[in-house]
């Protein structure tokens, strides 16, 4: 009796292993294909095989040497600059907002959270179009500065995840500090922030990654100003009908280059990501 049950459990597990392996294959296939294409010597987008006939590093080196049509190094620097500045601004804004909405009690708190909720229901780039016209009125469109403003200006509305984290810090800590005569400002800088390193790191990294993966906003802002493109928009151009045959392998190389650091960051951050999203609902 016991034996047959064990055997059945074993068979069940074997089935699960088989399914998991199959799924892993499906899920990894496009990524393997991307990496393989980035090392492929033969040009062209559509090949009937996945492992290249000849391997080469040319696709990577030419990204950085042949810059007349597609200036990858320049786009890379653009994205880096925009990412650094918008990361600083939005981190500050997000942390301030979520701290206030989580730890402080004031009359406008609930209304403000409701307003944020309502604002979030409008499609994101509806306001984007207006921002484009506003920036145009000030002669700022197609500049990196405009892009920084766009990425960090709306940051306050993304306060949920870090608010969820601040909510978990026991209030008793604040109260005992207050009894010792600490002001709320002191509490924020000296107690809450040091206790919140994970969420600070998370906020910084998320804000930093944003510009690397965004495609919509930058395409509205930059239009045809190739010099100020970010990596995402630039790579998108490589896949246009005229370019795809010649540039597909180079697109793959460029994509791999930005996907690697983002992948590492994300694997490192996944637990914060999950607790941030489920945090609010688990508590309900």
């Amino acid at each position: 009796m016991m034996k047959s049950m064990k055997a059945r459990a074993k068979a069940g597990n074997a089935l699960i292993y088989a399914i998991l392996s199959g799924l892993s294959f499906i899920w990894l296939l496009p990524i393997v294909w991307l990496i393989m294409s980035s090392f492929r010597k033969e040009p062209g987008a559509y090949t009937a095989y996945i492992i290249p006939k000849e391997f080469t590093l040319d696709n990577y080196t030419r990204l950085f040497t042949e810059t007349t049509l597609f200036n990858y190094p320049r786009w890379f620097m653009n994205t880096l600059i925009v990412a650094i500045f918008s990361c600083i601004i939005s981190t500050v804004i997000v942390l301030l907002t979520s701290y206030a909405l989580s730890r402080l009690r004031f009359k406008m708190r609930k209304p403000m959270m409701n307003i944020a909720l309502v604002l979030g229901m409008f499609p994101g780039f509806m306001s984007m179009i207006a921002i484009y016209h506003i920036l145009k009125a000030f002669g700022l469109t197609q500049s990196l500065f405009a892009l920084v403003l766009v990425y960090s200006g709306g940051a306050a509305l993304g306060y949920y995840i870090s608010k969820g984290f601040f909510d978990t810090i026991p209030k008793a800590i604040d109260e005992s500090a207050m009894l010792d005569g600490a002001s709320k400002n002191t509490i924020f800088w000296k107690i809450t922030l040091p206790l919140s390193k994970p969420i600070v790191v998370y906020t910084i990294l998320m804000a930093f990654i944003g510009p690397w993966v965004d495609f919509i906003f930058v395409s509205v802002i930059m239009k045809d100003n190739y010099q100020n493109y970010t990596v995402a928009l630039g790579l998108f151009q490589m896949l246009s009908r005229e370019n795809i045959y010649q540039y597909f392998t180079r697109f793959a190389a460029g994509a791999v280059l930005i996907a690697i650091p983002i992948t590492i960051l994300f694997i490192y951050m996944q637990k914060y990501y999950v607790s941030g999203i489920t945090g609010g609902s688990v508590k309900g």
Binding site: L28, I31, V213, A259, I267
Partner: peptide, 10 residues
């Protein structure tokens, strides 16, 4: 998780 981490546009 790797597939989440690869940027969606890619």
């Amino acid at each position: 998780v790797i597939t989440i981490a690869v940027p969606q546009f890619v």
